[in-house]
């Protein structure tokens, strides 16, 4: 038996929103410790990895590990039937999980709706991503990162990210001209969500597709801060941390000139 009850149902809506543009079908892997998902986009350039700890649910019950194969478009349609303040419970029979039950309860518990989502067999490739010591780790406001991606898309479909001790610089060059945004580290003790920090082993300069990056910024509503981890000639890691876990996006760099 699998059961996971999330008092903040809106979080599940936001999570789904941050994954569904990148992948259409995905396995939610459920175990005693929580729910996780790893899926690559069709072009095998980007990957999303989601982890939700069991402690974030109340209650959480999973007797044995199993996978829920979900079409995210279908799940999204059903999730639209949940109110933003609803408590959401996910239920499945782990021995014959051919459907996922979704229960939406409003705050006064007067309205309860129940939906069954048909599950599917998804044969997904999993990549093993090792713990990595990155050359540069940047924390910045997630809304700022979203704005930079949106703004620079006006100029080009790729962005070069340069990180030094003193700044992170985003540069775009296109047919109409060029643009860049530089951010310096700041620490605002009274407003930590607005701070920018750079931890640097060595300077890095990497080029990425803005289409994917701006797709990743769908995670913005999940966290005030975003973490960018870069190493030369390695995929970029973009992480949004939440109280109950994290969503991580990986993006392979573009080939340098």
């Amino acid at each position: 038996m699998f059961e996971a009850r999330l008092t903040q149902g809106a979080l599940l809506k936001r999570l789904l929103d941050s994954v569904k543009e990148l992948v259409t079908d995905a396995n939610f892997d459920c175990s005693e410790t929580g729910i996780s998902l790893q899926a690559m986009d069709n072009s095998h350039v980007a990957l999303v990895s989601l982890s939700l700890r069991a402690e974030g649910f109340n209650p959480y019950r999973c007797d044995r590990g199993f996978s829920l194969g979900v079409n995210l478009n279908s799940l999204n349609k059903i999730m639209k039937c949940a109110g933003n303040e609803d408590v959401i419970t996910l239920k499945a029979d782990d021995s014959s999980a051919d459907s996922l039950c979704l229960l939406f309860e409003n705050s006064s518990n007067e309205r309860v709706s129940e939906y069954e989502l048909k599950l599917m067999d998804i044969d997904q490739e999993h990549l093993s991503i090792p713990e990595t010591d990155y050359d540069a780790t940047v924390m910045m406001p997630s809304a700022e990162f979203q704005r930079i991606c949106r703004d620079l898309m006006v100029v080009s479909e790729s962005v070069t990210i340069d990180v030094s001790k003193d700044e992170i610089k985003f540069t775009a060059e296109g047919e109409l001209g060029t643009g860049n945004v530089k951010l310096k580290p700041t620490s605002t003790i009274d407003k930590p969500e607005e701070s920018i920090t750079i931890e640097l082993g060595q300077t890095v300069s990497l080029q990425f597709s803005l289409k994917y990056l701006s797709n990743f910024t769908r995670g913005t509503p999940l966290s005030d801060q975003v973490m960018l981890c870069l190493s030369d000639n390695m995929p970029l890691l973009v992480e949004y941390k939440m109280d109950i876990g994290y969503i991580r996006y990986y993006l392979a760099p573009k080939v340098g000139d």
């Binding site: 095998h44 350039v45 990957l47 490739e125 990549l127 991503i129 995929p235 573009k254 080939v255």
Partner: peptide, 14 residues
């Protein structure tokens, strides 16, 4: 895609 690495260039399949 021209000019773009793939994730499998960096990470092994499980």
């Amino acid at each position: 895609i021209n000019g773009q690495y793939f994730l499998c260039n960096f990470y092994a399949q499980k």
